[in-house]
Design a protein around this nucleic acid. Structure first.
Lengths: 125, 125
DNA sequence: TGAATATATGAGCAAGTGTTCATATATTAT
DNA sequence: ATAATATATGAACACTTGCTCATATATTCA
């Protein structure tokens, strides 16, 4: 199942074998989209702060909004997003809803990311 | 150096100790911003495909645009973004510019992300 | 029952993003 | 020199995002 990627750069590919090799490691659009979706969830400061706040234990929406210093509405909107991606789970207790992280992969990515910023920090100093 | 986060949810915080505990794992705005920046780089399908194409070896811009099936301009714009974040490095050889990954942390994050999508895939099946 | 509280959500808006198109720059070839 | 080629980049535009504000829903309390 070969894909044709002949024409380009001056009618013929500059480095044909390199291109073929790269095509092998290239991820398809569907995978790229899924990956992008995951990383998008982590690409916003507010959501990252939510994740960091929940990293130890669950919190109700109200407490979460206090911790973040943000409106309940803003927090709820972001929680919905994380919920839709199955990154957080929740349990209801009366009118109070407790949220907690629900994905070890995300926690892993989050922590790797933190390492990276620490690394960056050192580079700058 | 305690921050006051008294008032809220019905004048007083619902679960005061939980809130204090969460505040300890909460990352500050600056860190959240940096982290968001890193993950933002990985939050677009095109950039992820660029990273996947470069994951084995360097490629020139032209070959890269062939591999991706995208315009040279679009690819250049995205490369600039990755360059500004020091995620890719480049070397010039005449008028040809070769790009390669320049950050093991990003490669690490990318691969963890891939694992996650694989995990997701299995869940769905 | 009615009032108060915790959360969810739709609409709207300002800011950000990713592409295209046109064009600039730099290098090579004639 | 001039033409051709590889890359970079600014402007414009459609689309997305993250917030606020208003309001809906659900639960508890009096």
């Amino acid at each position: 199942m070969m894909t044709k990627l002949l024409a380009a750069c001056e009618e013929t590919v500059i480095h044909e074998d390199e291109v073929l090799a790269a095509s092998r490691t290239l991820i398809d659009g569907r995978t790229a989209g899924r990956l992008a979706q995951i990383f998008s969830a982590l690409s916003d400061p507010t959501r990252l702060r939510i994740i960091s706040a929940l990293s130890d234990h669950e919190l109700c929406v109200c407490d979460l909004s206090v911790v973040l210093g943000m409106s309940q509405s803003a927090v709820s909107h972001q929680l919905r997003l994380l919920r839709n991606l199955n990154l957080v789970k929740y349990r209801k207790e009366g009118r109070i809803v407790y949220y907690a992280l629900d994905d070890e992969h995300i926690r892993e990515l989050y922590e790797r990311g933190l390492e990276h910023t620490a690394h960056q920090e050192r580079m700058e100093a």
